[in-house]
Every structure is written in structure tokens, then in C-alpha cells.
Design a protein around this nucleic acid. Sequence first.
DNA 1: ACCGTTGCGTTCATATTGGTCATGAAAGGT
DNA 2: ACCTTTCATGACCAATATGAACGCAACGGT
Lengths: 237, 237
Amino acid sequence: MSDIRVLVVEDEPIASAAHAAYVQRLDGFSLAGTAPDGQSALRLLAEFSAAGNQVELVLLDMNLPDLHGLDIARRMRSSGLFSDIIAITAVRELNIVRSAVAIGVVQYLIKPFTYATFAEKLTNYRLFREQLASSDDGKTKTGASQSDVDQAFASLRTPSELQLPKGLSVSTLDSVKDFLRKEDAAVSASEVMDELGMSRVTARRYLEYLADAGSVSRAPRYGAPGRPENEYRWTRG
Amino acid sequence: MSDIRVLVVEDEPIASAAHAAYVQRLDGFSLAGTAPDGQSALRLLAEFSAAGNQVELVLLDMNLPDLHGLDIARRMRSSGLFSDIIAITAVRELNIVRSAVAIGVVQYLIKPFTYATFAEKLTNYRLFREQLASSDDGKTKTGASQSDVDQAFASLRTPSELQLPKGLSVSTLDSVKDFLRKEDAAVSASEVMDELGMSRVTARRYLEYLADAGSVSRAPRYGAPGRPENEYRWTRG
DNA sequence: ACCGTTGCGTTCATATTGGTCATGAAAGGT
DNA sequence: ACCTTTCATGACCAATATGAACGCAACGGT
């Protein structure tokens, strides 16, 4: 099966490069191009489409200099471009999620996100496509059943857990990530301990994992007596 | 919360009446109208929209005398109508499912279906909307997290309790659900075991199923030595 | 410069629970 | 009655947060 062609739409150069690198790193996907704003994204999509080289998936940042992501999606649909869309946003507004779903957004990523989260969403999307393709290749004359469709939709939600190192759990990692995203400032292990009600050792283990994974930066905090305390700051996005 | 306004688009009079009756029978939904073909559906939608009375959900048959369902959906998007769509079809073609998803079809029903199946899909959709509304009503300053969004998508796409997985029984599930609803606080598997007199394994299996189905939230309970115990809290209703 | 003080980093054993498997009982079909 | 299927159970091993103990790095006086 050929790769899924992906267009990355993102105005910040650093984030754009990161997302592009993520795509190339993932099996089953290939990068079709990148666009820094809505106009060029629409132009690129039209060009690819005219060349019979349709982009199948768009990673669409919702906050762009010229157009809002929802507007871009609407214009895509108006001009007959029906690529699938994964929305990426930093704003935490759930009410735009519904509008997004209505125009065919299949997944929703909240910045900043780790590579693991990114890979999970795209892999789910690929599984969704593969299930649709495999159950309908003409061999069975019965065709698709309701449960086939349900199963395909189910793979589009998020059960595919990534491989974490021994000793770490998904839900705890999520708690820590959510807390770090919420705090703009750098936080120490003790602060995470107090806020989430876990032990210092546990908090530090997860922060250290995130630091190794590159999602957070780690720096010592000087000025107070005692051994310097590490502080962690979210850097993804 | 006000009802979700639904438009039924279906050419066969008998089926149309049945679907309309189904909608009226369901809590949380009200029937906005019915249309026998694509043209009148589009006209009705435009009229409602102009009257500030936008239809929020369209039950769209894919095989209509004048237009294919996909075409209707495309024209809706082109004319700025962004109601959500549940597709209904008798043809068993999975490859059009992907196109349908790209234009914002949120669910897919294959004819013939029972009322139970119908109710399941619409209820999932309603829960999806409610979750988006509740997590974003301005009370929490943290905003939405990735897991909130994931949860909402899960309830949209998880086939819920109609076909129970092997090993689960309806009556036991009801006991567990009743107990969870009664308790406002989060409960652990052990507490369910003690209270309902079942084994821990059984209690955990049902709680885990409800967590996957999106009816309860699951979070580890920190603070005590030993492996953290999961606690479950009812989130529906 | 040196040294005691301070408080976090790091390691390890421990306490509990999560998860799986084979078993047993009960229900349903033939 | 016998067989098949289904669901709950107990026992097992694996997983994961905790607390204590020790080491380490900067601060602040001497």
C-alpha cells in the first residue's frame, strides 16, 4: 500500500519543521509539502489536485496569520478539496471542536504535544483507512456490515497505547503533561508533587522521562540553600 | 439544554415516517422536518438557516432520486450549511465511508437497522455534544486538555452497550452502573467488590468496560504505598 | 578557602493493585 | 440427559507508586 501524502500547514517555522520531521519519521506517511499560511495552503492543495496527486491528509494549524483554520477547511470543501484533516490548535476551546467535526476533521491535537501523541493520532488514522480498504476489496459479496463500519470508526478514536518504559503509566503521564501545559512558567518536581498529590519520586520520574523525550527543558534553579532544584518547562509547539 | 433539531432526508415514505418517529421517541432530540429528495432538503436547510433556526443534525439517506447523499453533503458545505450529518445507506460500500468522513459525516448507519442501533448512534452523538459543552462552560480556567477531546471523540465513535463484549452480562452491568450513579464520589474496584459482593476481577472488568465506553472516567489514586488503585467516577447523566 | 548546613537527586526494597489464565458453575440449546 | 456456551471466581505473576536512606551540589558563615 502506498504512503499517505500529508501537507503540513503551520506558520511558525520551527513548529512546521518539527511536524514535517514527525511525518517523515512515521511509517506509512510521506510529506507532500508545507505551507506557512492559509492562502498558500489552498493554492498548494489545488495544484496537487490538478496534477492528479491529491493530498490525502492535511495537518492544519488553527491559528494562522491570514485565515482561521475553520475558514480554510470550509474553503477547501467549497472548492471540491476533500482531503482529510487533523486539526492542531493551541487554544483550548472545545466549542470549536464541534464545528471542526462538521467539516470533516478526523482528529484533534492540542499544542504542545509530544511525538508520541502525534504518532498515536496519525497511526489511528492510518488504521482507519486500512480497515476501510481491507473489508471492501471486492472479495466478499456480502459487503460491509454495520459492525465493520463501527469498527473502523472505533479505530479512529484513541486506544492505541504507545510503548512506555517500564514503571510509567499512561494516565499518570497524561496528568503530568496536562499540568505542565497548564502552567506557563517552569515548575519543579515538588510543585508537581503538591499539585497532583503524588510523591516526589514519582513526579520526578515522569518529568525526567519527558525531559529525555525532548518535550520539556530542564534547568537547575539556583539562589536558595540546599542542592539546586531542577525546574522543567514545556517546550513543544 | 434544548433539544437537538433533526432533519430527516429519505425518499421512501415508510422509511421516512419510521425515522421521524424514531427521532421523536428519543430524549433530547426534536424533529425539524422531513424531506423526500436532495433539492427539497437543501431548500429546507437554507430556509431554517435564514430563519436563525439552524438544523443541527441531518439524517441523510445516501440513495435519493435526484442526488447522491455525498453530493448533497458537498453542496451543503459549499453553501455554508454546517449541520452535522449521520449517513444512512443500504449499499454496502466501505470506500465511500472515507469520502463521507471527509465532509463531516459523524456516524454511519447501514439499512436495515433496528431502533436500538439507531438510538445508539444518536445517543452517542448527543453525548459527544454534551461533553464538549460541559468541559468548556467557562468555569474551569484550565480549559480543555487533550484527554477531554479524546474522551469526546471516543463517545462519538465507540459502539456503546448494545453488543456487550464476551464475558459481560446485562444484569451485572446494571448493578455496577446503579452503584456508580448512587455514589457521587469516585470509587475503586475494591469498593465495588465489597459493596456488591462480587469478586475484584469481575468488578474491575465491568468498570474497565464502562471506562472504555466513556461512561466513567478513570484516574489513579495517589498517596498510599503500593501500586496505585484506579478510581472510577460516573460522568454521564 | 574551608566546612557545616540544607534540601533535592537517586536508589532500592516494599506494599498493593492491575491483568491474565485456567477452572467451575450455571444457563441454554439439542 | 448430554453437550455447548457463558460468566464469575481464585490464584498466579507483573506492574507501579511510595518511603526511607544515602549521596550530592550550592549556599553562607567562619
